[in-house]
Design a binder for these strands. Structure first.
Length: 468
RNA sequence: CGGGGAGUGGCGCAGUCUGGUAGCGCACCCGGCUGGGGGCCGGGCGGUCGCAGGUUCAAAUCCUGUCUCCCCGACCA
């Protein structure tokens, strides 16, 4: 078969756009930088969203919803925060046919509006910890948008919490990073990530410490896939969030905030996509099995229906494709492009032999399986292929991660992917220098796997890469 | 804002240098054949060539102005 899509590295952005368009995941919106997520893309997101939501709730957090519009003055209360976001704010100046007395900004993130509520909700140590999450869209006027990866409006979950102590806030921020983000990315998206600490230069505007999960894309570039911030008492002071502790002392709360977005779908495309389009991990696939008829008649359609029903009864997400008006080749390509994990082909030959051809999208291979064994075999194949995707992505990450002994060497190696280098060999000055070549410090890690508390500690390494 | 490039049917493009009936592929519609990996044949719908002005018998093409979009960088989940 002719190759339709070639993820050659120089063509990677183009390939990426094409996969999204051809698999009907999403398209550009009418306002520059906005995005329409089409049903197939959204169905994948819904499953990922549910997986993340479940993990968030397991930490004790509850969902709530806050306003889209924020008084401009709220943003100004935290100096570093407003400085970080000002350039990318969308501002509403008119309402009800009149000029507004005070402009409202469309939320770029909700720390300020959430904390204005927190200030009223919290008065005692008995109100803590307060763990809130919201699923919402936010707007940041991006200069260089790209579908899923960086759009001016995006859909995400943002968590906001308040704690009695710095230690508790710290532990919670890391818990989110590990038990929610890293776990969902590994188990559901089948993408292994580096977890680490952001440098001062890269951290969230308004945070004391930012932690992140960094993914390695097929072309070696980095994608920040989730972040968790320790806000210290910055917002607590700005919004007057105080509580009486168990000794009657009035104290400011310690806070965290954390988020992950539909950008994760971009990661799925850029990590798992291949020559033939998308490969969706079985756990996330809206349709896990497509049952296809080859040549109608002779009881083929009936047999295909029966098989689809049997799979459905086993809780497998299955669809029947018995469209007679399209050629078989066309139909196959459709499902391949969309990344449906398994394709069962059923025709007169199969019926006669009591076997079915099963094509596995992840492996790009076909197998012949006895019809009687199919119901048992399909769930096993899901597990195998989910694991296979993770294995491939892990191999990709490791292959794309090199070690450098000097900053010069690091600069060269970063053309191909991630580079580990001892932090003292880089440092703030090295970071500034690398930035001129389009290379950034994605995060700081320790060679013993522990979180980085002090960048100057021995054994701290920087992970460098070009980033999306 | 700096550096490149492009505006021509729904989408992707050729035609511009050298002015002379606006074309091709895909998609769509009709008819027929055909399903085991983007199938074939025939017919058809659809475009004031980004906009404004100029030169000319004649402008997609030449000249002037203008607008928009895209790519590389800066900003960034």
């Amino acid at each position: 078969m002719a190759t339709v899509l070639t993820p050659q590295e120089q063509d990677f952005p183009r390939w990426y756009q094409e996969v999204i368009a051809k698999s009907q995941l999403a398209e550009n919106g009418p306002v520059r930088g906005t995005m329409v997520i089409r049903p197939w893309g959204y169905a994948i997101w819904e499953r990922l969203e549910a997986a993340i939501d479940e993990r968030i709730k397991a930490t004790g957090a509850r969902n709530a919803y806050f306003p889209l519009l924020i008084p401009e003055a709220f943003l100004r209360r935290e100096a570093e925060h407003v400085e970080g976001f000002s350039p990318e704010l969308a501002v509403v100046t008119h309402g009800g046919g009149k000029t507004l007395e005070e402009p409202a900004v469309v939320r770029p993130t909700s720390e300020t509006i959430v904390n204005s509520s927190f200030a009223r909700w919290i008065s005692s140590y008995r109100d803590l910890p307060l763990l809130i999450n919201q699923w919402a869209n936010v707007v940041r006027w991006e200069l260089r948008p790209r579908l899923f990866l960086r759009t001016s409006e995006f859909l995400w979950q943002e968590g906001h919490t308040a704690h009695a102590t710095r230690e508790e806030a710290h532990a919670y921020a890391l818990r989110i990073l590990d038990e929610v983000y890293e776990d969902a990315m590994r188990q559901e998206l089948a993408i292994p990530v580096y977890r680490g600490r952001k440098t001062e230069r890269e951290k969230f505007a308004g945070a004391e410490i930012s932690w992140s999960c960094e993914g390695v894309m097929r072309d070696g570039k980095a994608l920040q896939m989730g972040t968790s911030h320790e806000l210290g008492q910055n917002f607590a002071r700005a919004f007057g969030i105080q509580f009486s502790d168990d000794e009657g002392q009035l104290r400011h709360v310690w806070q965290t905030s954390w988020g992950a977005s539909t950008r994760l779908l971009g990661a799925m495309i850029m990590v798992h996509g291949d020559d033939h389009g998308l490969r969706v991990p079985p756990r996330l696939a809206p349709t896990q099995v497509i049952v296809m008829t080859a040549r109608a008649g002779e009881g083929v359609t009936e047999a295909a229906k029966t098989l689809a029903d049997d799979l459905d009864r086993r809780g497998i997400r299955v669809q029947l494709d018995d469209r007679g008006e399209l050629s078989l080749g066309r139909r196959i390509v459709d499902h391949e492009l969309r990344g449906v994990p398994l394709r069962v082909e059923l025709g007169p030959r199969e019926l006669a032999s009591g076997q079915a051809v099963v094509a596995r999208r992840v492996r790009g291979a076909k197998e012949t399986i006895a019809l009687g064994a199919l119901l048992e075999r399909v769930p096993q194949m899901f597990d195998e292929d989910q694991q296979e995707l993770l294995d491939q992505a892990t191999a990709l990450r490791d292959r794309r991660t090199q070690r450098a002994e000097t900053l010069e060497q690091a600069k060269d190696l970063a053309a191909d992917g991630f580079v580990r280098i001892a932090w003292p060999l880089c440092g703030d000055r090295g970071e500034d220098q690398l930035a001129k070549s389009g290379i950034s410090v994605r995060c700081l890690v320790r060679n013993d796997g522990q979180p980085v508390y002090d960048a100057d500690d021995p054994g701290v390494e920087a992970l460098l890469a070009r980033a999306y």
